[in-house]
Every structure is written in structure tokens, then in C-alpha cells.
Write a protein that binds this DNA or RNA. Structure first.
Lengths: 204, 204
DNA sequence: GGGGGCATGTTGACGCGATCAACATGCCCC
DNA sequence: GGGGCATGTTGATCGCGTCAACATGCCCCC
């Protein structure tokens, strides 16, 4: 994809910067990332990063973009596995979203959470985020057609679903949920509540 | 409550600082708040705020604390109005939480959202947040006793409910939800899904 | 085969924001 | 009527983002 192994001076500083930035975000948030410190960690000078990113924001954007690529890939994978219009497909997408957040907290933070950049001003991220959202809307639309879920504005349904997943993901990675609580139960019940809300209610 | 009207030099700089900080957070996030700028806006020098807050963090903490006080007050109010154990009581609390976030985005951001401080390290905020959460748990417990909702770990139920409300509040104040979507519908459906998830399912 | 040129890095300098220290100014209390 | 604390102010220091000028490899073209 990018440069391969050992080009010029450092090697592939650009990729290393993105990885290191993510690590530093996980440790101390975006403020914990300083051009000076990241340079030092990678054995280059403070201004070296500027040869690869116009400014610090661009570096953080790259981290977010990497995150969007990963999340998109994961969602499409589980979605492909569980093709068709079973409700399980939606459940798995929700779980995968939350799992992604837990496994990539730094990326999630700059994508959607605390530390998130003004997506509105970063066309690249905006597009990536929209693509994921649109995919969800498509999935919901498909389920509406096949009769599994209520017929109503699929975008509203998508926002409801996203809200639940995002809220839970945020609380989990910001460690707002106490350790002695059964996290899996919370995740399970959240997705259940969500599916119940979407499911076409059987006439009683 | 605090100082009254016109004490020493400025008047009540302390309160003014908290208000102004909230306004500045709404405009440009916590990074948009600089001791210099806030001083200038209030007609004092850059170091004046230090006479009232040991550092910038303390000022932001004060904003968050104000927010917690307001939210707590609002929740207790609606809760009192709709006493008893009707499901409507839970719905109203959820709606009020979201409404608070929409009306006080700056406060919400530093309390729970993006820009949130490490609550873990601010005993004052930690306690305020816990109190609100515990109150929710109590309400859920009461509803369990009166049979309105499923009997299961009320803390898990509380986290599920909080996740949904927090997720929606976050997306709304971060303007992630497009303007042409029916926001009230999203709010309504979120709370509905939540209540359905909590409600004791009628045996069919 | 050698020189020019671009890609990469490095160091020095500037400006901004947080914060501390030393100094100024009201007011209230004894 | 003066001392002392509460409030403010100005000067100075330090870290950080960022730009400019300068250094260093390497690859490509003649």
C-alpha cells in the first residue's frame, strides 16, 4: 500500500507516526501527543513529522482515518458473514461496533468520542463516517423490505441504533462503567433492547 | 449562595468566570478557553482568574460541577412530579436528561462528553456523577418492586438506560445527526426502545 | 560516472498560553 | 489610623506548535 520497507532515512516514518500517535492518545489523549514527544519516541527531531503531515491536526486525522478504515472493514466482514436479513445480522454489527471501540479506544476517541475532531471540517473523515452510517441505513432498509423490522424512516432507526451503540462504547472506553458490573450483560441487553425496538411488533 | 453583589474589585469574578468559561466552551471547546482570553472578556488581567481557581482545570471543574448541580436538580424535579412507579417516570427522566444536554451543551461536554475531565481524578465530580447514577438505580429498583420492569441487576439496567441517553445526547450536541432528520422522533423512539427493554414482557 | 534535485531530517527562532513571583491596591477590622 | 488579607496586575519562565534556513542521502538523467 504505502512505502514498503526501508526507503530513506528513518524507514517509514509516516506509518510509525500514525501508530505512535494512536498509542500516545490511548495514554494521555490528544493533548498527550506533542510533536516533540512523538519525535523523540521515534528517534527523530521535533520537526521531522512535518515532512509527512502539514500539522498536528493532520496527524490526528490520519489516526482517525485509519480507525474508520478498520471499523469499516470489520463491519463489512461480519455483515458479509451474516448476510441476508436476519435480525442477527444487525445484532452482530452492533456488537462488532462496540467491540471495535473497546479494542481501539484511541482510534474510537478521535473518530467519534471525546477528542473527536470537527468531522464537519475534515472531508476525508466526514465521508468515511457517512459511508458507515449509510451502510447501516441500507441494512435497515433491507430488513424493512423483508419484513423483519418496522417500516419507518430508516435513518431515524439508524440514529437510534447508533446512539445506543455509541453511548455504550463511550461509557466503556471512558471507564465510566464500574468494573464489578457484568459488561457482557450490559452489551447484550443494549442490543436486545435495540432489536426489540426495531422488530415489527407481533399483533397480540 | 456564594458572594452576593459587589464585594471587592471586580464584583463577583468567580461566578463570572464560571459563566464565561461555559460560554467559551460552547464556542470553541475547552481549548477555546484561555486564561488570557477569559480575563480579557471580563475586563481583568490574565492572572486574575488564578485568585479564584488554582489552575485552568479547576475552572473547568467548576463548570462541570455547576452542570451536575443543574442536572441533578432537574432530574429530581421531574422525578418528584411524576412520583410513584409509572413507567412514565423513567421516560421523563430520560427525556429530561437529553433535554438538559441540548440546553447546556458546554456543561454536558465537560461532565460526560467530549472535553470531559478525568472524573476519576476529581472527587467532587465523581461524587456528583455517582449520586445521579445512584438515583437512577434507586428509581429502577422501585419499579422492579412494584412489578413494572424486569427483575435483574438494576445497575445493569441503569447502564443500558444511561448508554442510550448519553449516546443520543452526545450525537445531538456534537451535531452528528443531520438537520433534516426528525430529532423528536429519534428521541421518542430511543426512550421507547429503552422502556420496552425494561418492561416486564407480558407472557403471550 | 558525476552532478543536480527532491525527499527527509535537523536546529534555531517566534509567538502563544499556562503559571509563578513580586509588586500594587482596596477595604475591613481592631 | 494602620496592618493585613483579598484581589489584581505586570514581568518572567517554560513547553509546544510551527516556520525558515541549512544538512544529508539517493536516484535519475546526461
Amino acid at each position: 500500500m504505502t512505502k514498503s520497507a526501508a526507503p530513506y532515512h528513518h524507514g517509514s516514518l509516516k506509518d510509525a507516526l500514525v501508530d505512535e500517535a494512536a498509542a500516545m492518545i490511548a495514554e494521555g489523549g490528544v493533548d498527550g501527543v506533542t510533536m516533540r514527544a512523538i519525535g523523540e519516541r521515534l528517534g527523530v527531531s521535533r520537526a521531522a513529522p512535518y515532512r509527512h503531515f502539514p500539522d498536528k491536526t493532520a496527524l490526528i486525522v490520519a489516526v482517525a482515518a485509519t480507525g474508520f478504515a478498520r471499523l469499516s472493514h470489520r463491519l463489512r466482514s461480519v455483515d458479509a458473514e451474516a448476510a441476508g436479513a436476519s435480525l442477527g445480522r444487525i445484532r452482530r454489527m452492533g456488537e462488532e461496533y462496540i467491540r471495535f471501540a473497546i479494542e481501539n479506544p484511541a482510534h474510537y476517541r478521535v473518530m467519534y468520542g471525546k477528542e473527536a475532531l470537527a468531522r464537519r471540517e475534515q472531508p476525508e473523515l466526514r465521508q468515511a463516517g457517512d459511508a458507515i452510517f449509510d451502510h447501516l441505513v441500507d441494512v435497515l432498509r433491507a430488513h424493512q423490505r423483508s419484513g423483519g423490522i418496522k417500516r419507518q424512516d430508516p435513518r431515524v432507526q439508524a440514529y437510534v441504533a447508533w446512539s445506543a451503540a455509541h453511548g455504550l462504547a463511550s461509557l466503556l472506553i471512558e471507564e465510566q462503567i464500574l468494573a464489578d458490573v457484568d459488561v457482557d450483560a450490559v452489551i447484550g441487553q443494549t442490543t436486545n433492547a435495540l432489536l426489540n425496538g426495531l422488530r415489527r411488533r407481533a399483533r397480540r
